[in-house]
Design a protein around this nucleic acid. Sequence first.
DNA 1: GTCTATACATAGATAGAC
DNA 2: GTCTATCTATGTATAGAC
Lengths: 236, 236
Amino acid sequence: MTFQEFSKEVMVSVEVLCRDYYRENRESIRIKKEDVAVKNLVTIVTTTLNLSYKKGFDAMSLRDLSRESKLSMGALYSYFNSKEELLSLIQYHGQAAVEKILREYVGRGNNPLKKLQNAIRIHLYLSELMQRWFYFFFMEAKNLNKKYKKLSVESELMTERIITDIIEDGVTQKIFTVDDVRLAGSVIKAMMQDWYLKQWKYRERKVSVESYAQCIIDIAESYLTNKRSHSRTNKK
Amino acid sequence: MTFQEFSKEVMVSVEVLCRDYYRENRESIRIKKEDVAVKNLVTIVTTTLNLSYKKGFDAMSLRDLSRESKLSMGALYSYFNSKEELLSLIQYHGQAAVEKILREYVGRGNNPLKKLQNAIRIHLYLSELMQRWFYFFFMEAKNLNKKYKKLSVESELMTERIITDIIEDGVTQKIFTVDDVRLAGSVIKAMMQDWYLKQWKYRERKVSVESYAQCIIDIAESYLTNKRSHSRTNKK
DNA sequence: GTCTATACATAGATAGAC
DNA sequence: GTCTATCTATGTATAGAC
């Protein structure tokens, strides 16, 4: 599956996501016309993601947001009750959207090798489409309150789990060889994460998301299918 | 080289680092007794790193810092002229200290394979010793002004360069096979970075820095010494 | 050298006109 | 629904006593 095919198919629209948020919070949002509300929410969220990418959520003042989104302070507060609520809106609904898409696309393939390739590609394609979101999830997680922080950690572990489950499967089928499945999954995830954390670097070097994916796949494969024992890792 | 051997040998003391800063900025620091100044600078820097780790540098107010470090607001401002100066003090002198140590230890080994193993280990050991610093460098880079941001990017590329130079060398000697040397170096760095960005995860799982290092080395080796062609990556 | 007290700017948040 | 004007808390930074 190429990136282009994927992006045509998923249509992760911020609009859908904001509509979900709106419908779940009708009571606390003062705006009653759904279309107006959703339209402005999209602006608010998009602007927040961009400003946070530049200076961080905490450094972004609501006056910055007001200026950039061309909505007054008063208008902003019709859509959320506090800056913290804006933060958790993005984190919570964003991660939910990501999980939904991952669950839908990941898991395809009829053997562990194909499944792994697919999982890596899908993850990377999605993080490319939603770069600002993924960056935000990671960089702003520490500002969340206890409840949302817990959800955020769970989300991190869930995506790791997708990888480790496939590896586990491959080990059982004697296709993969590896000592510590969870550690392997963790570092594969780390490589994937670099794609959206260091966007500036890869953009500058004109690395395409497809070739990046292929590189990670090659690395994962050569490690997991390496017949030589990794016995030194076993010392513990 | 084990982590214990390394940590005994390097002695990255925050004190040395603060003394350097003090001596370079004698004019602008109002405190004239070096020992008093250095002692308080150590407290200030350490406390800043800890608070920033918890809530981010931007969210940390100088009142927080004053409370935690048990120095009054007035006292704090005897050591720096603005919050921004505190930020760049940590970034600039911290990264300089890191580079100095890396230059000293990396490059040992009499063939590319040994050199690569050594470079990965030293990087990880150092990032373990200076976890708060490395975390700070990455998370707070966006708050720097233009001048220091440039230095920060250079520092990132420099450490990447250490890895790619070794790989390049190995390719020339036909020990390694890889299409895109720079991309390989970049993702190896990404795996190393995860060690200090996700400390909570690895601590919880009781992964030692040595076994983490061994895992990254195994992955890098199996990829770089894999004879199978990575032709698919070559499409560009 | 260190403190307390305070100036001044800006932050988040809200009231009430339109 | 959106705006402007304004409240109050908190932030960075400094002056001046000890």
